[in-house]
Design a binder for these strands. Sequence first.
DNA 1: TTTATTGTTGAACACTGTTTACTTTTTGAA
DNA 2: TTCAAAAAGTAAACAGTGTTCAACAATAAA
Lengths: 217, 217
Amino acid sequence: MTETATTPAEKRRLKVRDSILVAAERVFADEGEAGLSIRRLAKKIDYSPAAIYKYFASKDDLVDELKDAFFDRLLAQVHEITDTSRPFAERMGDCIATYVKEGLASPHHYAAAFVGTAIDTGIDSSHPEFTQRSKGRAFRVLMGMVVEGKELGHFRSDLDPELAAKSLWASMHGLTMMMIHIPTYPRLSADSDAPDREAFIQMHADHLVRGLESRDE
Amino acid sequence: MTETATTPAEKRRLKVRDSILVAAERVFADEGEAGLSIRRLAKKIDYSPAAIYKYFASKDDLVDELKDAFFDRLLAQVHEITDTSRPFAERMGDCIATYVKEGLASPHHYAAAFVGTAIDTGIDSSHPEFTQRSKGRAFRVLMGMVVEGKELGHFRSDLDPELAAKSLWASMHGLTMMMIHIPTYPRLSADSDAPDREAFIQMHADHLVRGLESRDE
DNA sequence: TTTATTGTTGAACACTGTTTACTTTTTGAA
DNA sequence: TTCAAAAAGTAAACAGTGTTCAACAATAAA
């Protein structure tokens, strides 16, 4: 009765659509939005460029799908970390660190997911209902942690969880973007970076959590 | 003796060069890097597209100059705020708030200044000596504030000023980017935003400073 | 004035996203 | 099985893009 039955035709269609997405994902991960062109993509999957427009309304639509999928993966990772039953402070720190590290693992995806959203610069302000449901959900996880921290007395009682979580998110986002765009980030010279970075992320998370804590030890 | 004497020819050359930059600045401020094309620019100043390449090696070079100029302006603004003789806590907060607000005042410049830098994604790592002297200087101002905070006993004594300043910078950067790319940022719905934003910036700055403070009141 | 240098250009190259008209293939019903 | 309709796929064109190059004009140096 319900229309869950996918006809063979539809199945084939989804398969082609997916193969486009897979090929696009490969290029995008390596070279970002700049390296991904419809024509190159068409060549890679032995189709004509116009064919792709039978599956996606525009290049932006296609890329948006890649970005959304990435953000869902990021969310899953963070959720997994958050769900363990470890001390609150640990979980909070890991939540932040995981977010940053996952962003760094797919720098092109992460940067594009935010930068791709148009800059307002004016009065038009066509608000896309908080930009995306993926981001909205990712944010809600963070807000849940702040609420928990308040209930535990770990965080200041005068915090507005929504605003505090957004402040936190901005700081996590900032570190991720910095590390993506400035290869030598924590250090000025380009020496060993790998261990440095991990430690820096932890320190950053530490500062952020401290900023919300109540002051009776 | 010294070659400071600019011949009339050189003066004329600089004038043309500057007129290109001025025209580019106007377009860039309104529409960003996407809206700025060499051909459009050439039409605006009644030159041929090829002529621009006698003054700038590439479009990237031209845009880089716009971005650097912006960052110098940003630095000047922050410096001005910082140099007054007001209580440390106030100055620190204002330093952060000014940075964010100045970034929001020129969203295309700010976003491009960071995003424009290529993503490393690999081993090449052609490190551009901490990406720019402008950014390096802007950062040094912030580090000076952390050092001062430590000396005053306001900040924890175990802070590494360089690392703490970089953590701070990342958080400032994050809020700026968030507000640039998500028009409704602090609030979910697109209601009144102007007063909300100002207050949120202040709160964010507050959290950040708190994160570095020592805990004896 | 003549040579050399610099400034400027139109035309071309190699790309880009997208649309249109057209052809081929697949599908569902008579 | 036949046949019209719907879907899939394509070549070619449109309107852009950054960039280069051979040719020509204007200026500076001899």
